[in-house]
């Protein structure tokens, strides 16, 4: 990927990847770090995508997986989660819907992101996440039940 290509790719997806990472990491610094790593993966692998849809799906899966691994590693290493409230948290703290999404268990987040944010249908999500469609529908239904209170 040339410098121009990288810049164009980055500008196209920076917010998408950052915001997806933020829903997992809940802190701006951690979201930045993870989002950067995802773009580095694109560079290191010299990825060639088959169009925009492919790019987006790949990024959604790669970013979510990367964040989940980071969180697992952090839990495994026993490193305490920081309780420092950063600027972004301050700005977002009054958004009840966002807070509810952030507080969802991680297993629901990819499905919620792909369904609500990206607008994919459950059958498409099943293909992207390599899960049975019934599992996706169940996850979505459970997530919706958790979010119900703030969405009403």
């Amino acid at each position: 990927m040339s410098r121009d290509e990288l810049e164009a790719f980055y500008n196209k997806y920076k917010e998408y990847v950052y915001k997806l990472c933020y829903t997992y990491m809940k802190r701006a610094a951690d979201a930045e770090d993870c989002a950067e790593d995802v773009f580095v993966k694109v560079l290191s692998n010299d990825l060639k995508f088959n169009g925009e849809e492919h790019e987006k799906r790949w990024l959604a899966v790669a970013a979510a997986n990367h964040c989940k691994n980071k969180l697992k590693k952090r839990n495994r290493d026993g490193a305490p989660l920081s309780d420092i409230t950063d600027e972004v948290q301050e700005e977002n703290k009054n958004d009840e819907v966002l807070q509810a999404v952030l507080s969802l268990p991680d297993k629901y987040k990819s499905v919620v992101w792909l369904y609500y944010y990206d607008g994919y249908k459950t059958a498409e999500i099943a293909k992207i996440l390599k899960k049975p469609a019934s599992t996706v529908r169940n996850l979505l239904s459970e997530a919706r039940a958790i979010l119900k209170k703030v969405l009403e």
Binding site: E15, K19, Y22, N92, D95, V97, W113, Y116, G119, L151
Partner: peptide, 18 residues
């Protein structure tokens, strides 16, 4: 509900410094 969730995620702050 889709709109509410999408808007909330869209509102996550992301500025030029970041």
């Amino acid at each position: 509900e889709t709109e509410k969730i999408k808007n909330s995620i869209d509102n996550i702050a992301f500025n030029s410094d970041t």
